[in-house]
């Protein structure tokens, strides 16, 4: 458990409420044009363009093995990692929250940190875990 006020941005995917640490690049955007890529990678939906940047769109549902039909123009949550921009495909962006504590779910191996919103466990997606644990680029 860590006790220090931290900010997160929350979103809905399928029926789940999830969160990502808030950073300077965090914003929700609508992916108007998505270029599919000729690769066999379940996590990568394609590449889009936003405000001068290329954004690699990720299938957030595949992180959790969810049965989710991605719309043709998905809502995405923008974040940066190691010099690149990424968009997590989501159903709906919700809000930013400030919480005093982050908890650890010991029974989970990945995305095992969570915050409490209205007593509900909201699991956190951290960029580092997405790329190192899921091995997106392998």
């Amino acid at each position: 458990m860590s006790s220090k006020n931290q900010q997160f941005i929350t979103f809905k995917l399928s029926d789940r409420l999830l969160a990502m640490p808030l950073n300077k690049d965090s914003q929700f955007f609508s992916c108007e044009h998505l270029l599919a890529l000729p690769i066999n990678n379940k996590y990568i939906a394609g590449v889009s363009y936003l405000n001068g940047q290329l954004v690699t769109i990720l299938r957030t549902d595949k992180f959790f093995g969810l049965n989710w039909k991605m719309p043709s123009h998905p809502q995405c949550l923008l974040f940066s990692y190691q010099g690149d921009f990424y968009g997590l495909a989501v159903d709906q962006g919700i809000d930013t929250v400030t919480v005093p504590q982050v908890y650890l779910e010991k029974t989970k191996n990945i995305f095992n940190k969570y915050i409490k919103i209205n007593k509900q466990k909201v699991f956190i997606l951290e960029a580092e875990q997405i790329f190192t644990e899921l091995k997106i680029y392998v």
């Binding site: 270029l35 890529l37 363009y49 680029y137």
Partner: peptide
């Protein structure tokens, strides 16, 4: 970084309509 998975392509470019 995703273009590492596509070594046979030169890269990505944007058209006037904002398409990649």
């Amino acid at each position: 970084s995703v273009m590492r998975l596509l070594p046979k392509f030169k890269g990505l470019a944007i058209s006037s309509s904002g398409r990649v």
